[in-house]
Structure formats: C-alpha cells, structure tokens
Amino acid sequence: MQKEVLIADSLSVSFNHQTVLDEVSFSVAKGEVFALLGGNGAGKSTTLKTFLGTVSPHSGIAKVMGLNVTSEIDKIRAKVAYLPESVTLYGHLTGVENIQYFLALAQVNCTDADIEQALKRVALQQNAWHKKMSFYSKGMRQKTAIALALLRNAPVLFLDEPTSGLDPNAIDEFNQLIANLATEGTTVFMVTHDVYGACHIAHRIGLLDQGKIVGMFERGGQTNIDTEAVHAAFSARNRP
C-alpha cells in the first residue's frame, strides 16, 4: 500500500451558510495522479483551495503529507506547487524574470541553467523567454507557470484546469510531463471538467456533484479509465 499524501476526511466547507463541500472523503497516494471532475459549482476549486489553505474547512480534516491544513499551512506550502486555471503572471516582467521572482518568493535557489532547462522541458519557445509577459499568449503563460511548478521541485502538485487554453500539441506534451512527474514520485491533484483529458492522464477520478463525491473511477493496470463510463456519469449529473 502506497503512502497517502493527500487526505480529505469528512471535509465540509460552507460560505454564508451555504454548503459547498459536504462530508467529502478521499485520499491520494504518492506518485498518483488524481483528478477531481465536476461541473460548474460542484466544489472542485473549493476542494483544491482547502488543500492550499486559502479556504478554511467548516468541519472535517484535510491533510497534505500528514500536515493539517488548518494548523500547518506554512509547512504545507513549502512542499506544494500550484498551477492556477488562469495564469496571470506579472506583465511588466519577462517570462524568466517572473520565474526568478516567484522562486525568490518561495526561497528556492535555482540557477539560470535550471530555469532554461525547465523552460525547454515545457517547450516554451526560446525567443519568448526574455519577452515581457504582457506579450504572452494564454498557452505561453500556462507553460511558464508549469516551468515554475517544476522548478519548485515540490512533491505535491495542485493543478486547476491545467489544460484549458492549451493547443492539442501542448496538451499532449503536458500530459506526458505529468505522467513523467508521477513516475518520478510526484503526487498530482488536479481539478477539471475535461472528461477526456482526465481519463487520459489520471490514475483515479473522483466525480464531484453539489459538494459530494458521487463516483470514483480507477485505472485498471495499463488501461486508461473508461471514458464512456465517466462521461455517462458526468453527463447524468450535468444535464442542462
């Protein structure tokens, strides 16, 4: 049995007396890619933000690497990297300068060579590295943020709709990158409403609806999760 890196145990969150997460429980093992799938307002981002400590749970427990999010968030943040859905880095800085700034913020020492290597790994074209971020496309900003997450060298990676805005080639490259990271032992927790992407990349998928886990799908050995089954379950819950 692999060690559990993320644990949500009867996790509930409410805003203004309205329940957003209702007794959610799951765990994610080391080196596992876990996708939380759900429609708009299902509570995916709230789950992710609870692990990041930007949303406080109303009841229940959320742990990252054995650390409780309510009492040990600073220690948790030193061990995780986060890729937001809409990456808006600083427009007045270049791609490299943005990475340098955020690494300094995280107090992570990286050489210029490390940064170059990370940028190559995420396939950001070299002529853009020293251009101001305000000239970057959404995909380029996403790649810069992924490079930053890689350079953090964090054992846990939180991804919020990571492939939105990426072109098909970039999505393939990204999926490959995540698979490699998982193989190297990085735990990946992603929230998405992209059924096909999630089935392709995740070891397990949790289906979230109205703040509750309503289904759990698991990869069978080398076989990807059955897209049809997940799609059917997702559609049943998210009909217009």
Partner: peptide, 18 residues
C-alpha cells in the same frame, strides 16, 4: 483582481512578509 493572489500566497514562504 489580476488572479495572482492564490499563486502568490501559495508560493510565498511567508505571505505576511511579502
């Protein structure tokens, strides 16, 4: 409003000192 807040807070070693 620029959508950087969560990334900054999660990345910063100490958000108060930021």
């Amino acid at each position: 409003s620029a959508g950087r807040y969560d990334l900054l807070v999660v990345t910063a070693k100490n958000q108060h000192s930021l």
